[in-house]
Nucleic acid binder design. Structure first.
Lengths: 158, 158
DNA sequence: AAAAATATGTCAACATGGCTGACATAAATA
DNA sequence: TATTTATGTCAGCCATGTTGACATATTTTT
């Protein structure tokens, strides 16, 4: 079997991340095209769907973009009826975001092929591989983001 | 311990990919800024460095962008002395691409923090985790890309 | 030798989705 | 009441993707 030096091994891992991510995000693109939406819309729909009632500020913090960039895609999603805003009950300055029925359907059509892909991939690793994969993916995060991401992704685990 | 339904588990994995990749590509950005280069330049420098003498057509096939998009960043990299073109010896229509000494230094400064990050993350998984992680990342690829990616990433394994 | 195909380059126009800066409004807080 | 906060909006800029059309040099096919 080939022996590989550590630098090469790491370079290969870096390229696996590049190519893996490239294909991972490829499924939704065709679907989005039919709506004349882009990846920016996808991200908003995804995180609003995962965090119903999220405030604009919280969404900006997840996406790490400016409010002006968000405003463009958010306006389109609202105008076309995929997202609604509701004034916050406790703090009436807030605009809490929710998916409409149409938004939830769009999200579902986007996430379905991604789930299928990830499900297959995790299964390909065999028993125990999923935990190892998760540990490594989590360890890729900047330390200052780990707590936040942990909260975000485990939001509705039972 | 929390029991988690399969859909939620997969959604969490999808978000781990999103956040993990986001942080994974964060290191080089500051470095690139100092050169007034962007991620597109990074990709070109990376794959030219990994595949010395690569042709323009091969590079386009890896990057999946149009030649007009590539032309812009490639021109800048050539003008500023990070990449050189040499006419193909067998086929003189080809322009084979190589990094200059400066290009190799730039690549090294970009890849070093990525290697450090990935190295730490793989180590965090413990023994055997790296193989599991690789298997899963590879299984994320579109089937039609697997052979190509396998060749690309194992290019100089011994 | 001529014709066709290939590898590459270039011009022009346009779209998406980032960015900064400035300013406005309503509501909460000090 | 004054200030801060959450949000929205206008205007313009930049990076990097796209399509379409066309040019050149070289190789391959006829």
């Amino acid at each position: 079997m080939p022996q590989t030096d550590p630098e090469t091994r790491l370079t290969e891992a870096i390229e696996l991340l590049f190519f893996g991510y490239r294909d991972f995000i490829s499924d939704p693109d065709a679907i989005l095209g039919a709506y004349e939406f882009g990846r920016a819309h996808h991200r908003v729909v995804h995180f609003v769907g995962r965090n119903p009632g999220i405030t604009v500020a919280e969404l900006l913090d997840i996406l790490r973009i400016t409010k002006q960039s968000l405003a463009r895609v958010l306006r389109q999603l609202i105008e076309r009826g995929f997202v609604v805003q509701k004034t916050g009950e406790k703090d009436r300055r807030q605009r809490r975001l929710y998916l409409t029925k149409e938004g939830a359907e769009l999200l579902n059509s986007l996430v379905a092929p991604q789930r299928a892909r990830v499900s297959k991939a995790l299964a390909a690793g065999g028993a125990g591989a999923e935990d190892a994969w998760r540990t490594i993916m989590f360890a890729l995060l900047n330390e200052e983001n780990r707590t936040e991401v942990e909260h975000l992704i485990t939001k509705d685990s039972k």
